[in-house]
Amino acid sequence: MKPSRSEFITVRGLRSHVRQWGREGAPKIFMVHGWMDVAASFQFVVDCLEGDWHVIAPDWRGFGLSERSASDTYWFPDYVADLEFILDHYAPGGQINLLGHSMGGNVVSLYAGVRPERIRRLVNLEGFGMPVSNPSQAPRRYAKWLDALREPTELRSYPSLEAVAARLQKTNPRLSDARAEFLSRHWSAPNADGRWEILGDPAHKRPTPLLYQVEEVLACWDAITAPVLWVEADDTNMWQWMGPKEQARVEIDRRLAHLASVTPKMMADAGHMLHHDQPEALAAMLEDFLAE
Rank of each mutant, 00 (worst) to 15 (best):
Ala26Phe: 03
Ala163Phe: 10
Ser109Gln: 14
Trp75Ser: 08
Trp60Met: 11
Leu183Thr: 02
Leu286Gly: 06
Asp277Phe: 09
Met1His: 11
Gly13Leu: 08
Pro92Ser: 09
Asn237Ser: 11
Val32Thr: 10
Leu256Ile: 13
Leu218Glu: 12
Gly22Glu: 08
His272Trp: 07
Leu274Ser: 05
Leu49Arg: 09
Glu7Ile: 04
Arg120Asn: 13
Thr236Asp: 04
Arg68Phe: 12
Glu215Gln: 15
Ser157Lys: 15
Gly13Lys: 09
Val108Thr: 04
Leu211Asn: 02
Lys28Asp: 03
Gln20Glu: 12
Phe85Val: 14
Leu282Thr: 01
Arg254Ile: 00
Phe128Gly: 08
Ala178His: 04
Leu274Met: 14
Trp145Tyr: 13
Asp234Ala: 13
Leu161Val: 02
Glu24Thr: 13
Ala81Asn: 10
Lys28Met: 12
Thr236Glu: 10
Ala219Met: 08
Pro135Ser: 14
Asn172Ala: 09
Ile96Ala: 02
Val108Ser: 01
Ala233Val: 07
Ser133Cys: 11
Trp196Asn: 04
Leu99Pro: 03
Cys220Ala: 13
Tyr90Ser: 02
Pro279Cys: 06
Ser176His: 09
Arg167Cys: 02
Ala270Asn: 07
Ile9Ser: 06
Leu274Cys: 03
Asp37Gly: 01
Asp269Val: 05
Leu199Tyr: 00
Lys170Glu: 14
